[in-house]
Design a protein around this nucleic acid. Structure first.
Lengths: 112, 112
DNA sequence: TTTTCATACCTAAGATAGTTATGTATATTT
DNA sequence: AAATATACATAACTATCTTAGGTATGAAAA
């Protein structure tokens, strides 16, 4: 995924975020999209991605549609209603996380 | 630690960051400091903290000094030279991570 | 033409970093 | 006297990832 351990725990957030911007995507496409959006900084491994997709589907956040393209099978994922809601709260969670970490590395001096 | 899984992988960064601002701290003090700095958003559990401190010490990033205060034992940790260097690179890593995540949730439209 | 690379899915073993629960001990507060 | 705060610690469990493999098709390079 990356040499940095900070990405641990962020994969489902990333997937939901991708799908909130794009109606439907398939797994391999997500790895490529993330690679280009992050200029190679983040490479999602398939061993992490596919289990994560299956879990999101099992949790009813994603639904699947199979499609055959060029004689090759693709599994397109899209957000369910529940998934759309979750993607919003995951985004808020991420923003809260970043604010919190910022407050830790750059503490405001207490007034007084 | 927090209900959010995003903090997973950030603990050593946080510890090093605390110690780059404060000459020496002991474990319990770190949990309290983080709690106040994050207004309760982040509570470091002892089950996570102590093993993390031991690992940082084993990796030669921290050194220990025992002190008896009020008849209670405290283990004060401070950065080694190596730890000071590492705290800087961990900080850069965190900032890169946040930039990357920001680029994912708020992609710049490609020019053209 | 055969091998390699890209596309496209998948799982399983192992590593790692947490949680939850528990233990010890002293000091303070209720 | 009992509960809470201080201060350390470990152990069983869980979740998420890495590493390493597997299947299969199509395109490019050797």
């Amino acid at each position: 995924m990356s040499n940095s351990k900070l990405y641990k725990g962020s994969l489902s957030t990333i997937i939901l975020q991708l799908l909130s911007k794009e109606d439907k995507m398939y797994g391999y496409e997500m790895t490529q999209r993330v690679k280009e959006l992050t200029k190679g900084e983040l490479n999602i491994t398939e061993g992490a991605l596919y289990p994560a997709l299956h879990k999101l589907e099992a949790d009813n956040l994603l639904e699947v549609e199979m499609k055959k393209v060029d004689n090759r099978l693709r599994k397109y994922y899209k957000l369910t209603q529940k998934g759309a809601t979750e993607s919003v709260s995951k985004l808020e969670e991420l923003e809260r996380f970043m604010q919190t970490m910022n407050g830790l590395i750059n503490p405001k001096p207490s007034l007084g």
